[in-house]
Design a protein around this nucleic acid. Structure first.
Lengths: 99, 99
DNA sequence: ACCATACTTTTATGAATATCAAACTATCAG
DNA sequence: CTGATAGTTTGATATTCATAAAAGTATGGT
């Protein structure tokens, strides 16, 4: 009677683990509201976190496939990866605007 | 520059924490596929978990508002609370059927 | 070459989590 | 009342997690 977990289920678990941290959820909301890339420093200033902690969170988001990162000089810009949200959490991002 | 978290954000964090565990995700899927209430024992047999562990997970799901529980004699039947999914994760349950 | 900026990684630490066994509560059947 | 069934709670344990300080990497400015 054992049910095996699919690759997508592990993917889902990783995604939800990312979203279960209030700080990461705020990062997602900021990125969604701003509709553009933001730097780590810029995002870190909105929460009361050191840069190393912000970097830790961004790594998690990136590995879960929730964000894209592009590098310009020494600055890294982070943006949402909408395909992932569309596939695993359709309609979720919109709910972040309600409150 | 500090952003305060709303009550709903704490609610979201709790919900996502629930869904970030692969076993709980399977419980949700089983409940969704069966379209009816199931008992703890019945659900526990599908995963390789002791009854106390299953009980622990169901408490988490109930506290997060993801499930309803009705008691009939000594058996407790658990079902999904669709309003919660509709409010915080519209469209999510359907994605569980794809794979 | 030197210093500052932007970010990452490592290390350490305290808090939270998942799990099971054992003890407990409640209900049913005889 | 006794024994069995369904589920909860408590206690112990091993693992994972979030955080920050410190050290490290890479790029830009002068």
């Amino acid at each position: 009677m054992n049910i095996k977990l699919s690759d997508n289920d592990f993917r889902r678990a990783e995604i939800f683990k990312c979203l279960s941290d209030p700080n990461r959820l705020q990062l997602i909301r900021l990125l969604y509201k701003n509709k553009k890339e933001m730097s780590c420093t810029e995002l870190g200033e909105h929460l009361n976190l050191t840069l190393s902690t912000v970097s830790y969170h961004f790594k998690a988001l990136r590995l879960a496939g929730l964000t894209n990162t592009i590098k310009d000089g020494r600055t890294k810009y982070v943006s949402l990866r909408y395909e992932t949200f569309a596939k695993f959490l359709p309609g979720f991002l919109e709910t972040l605007l309600i409150d």
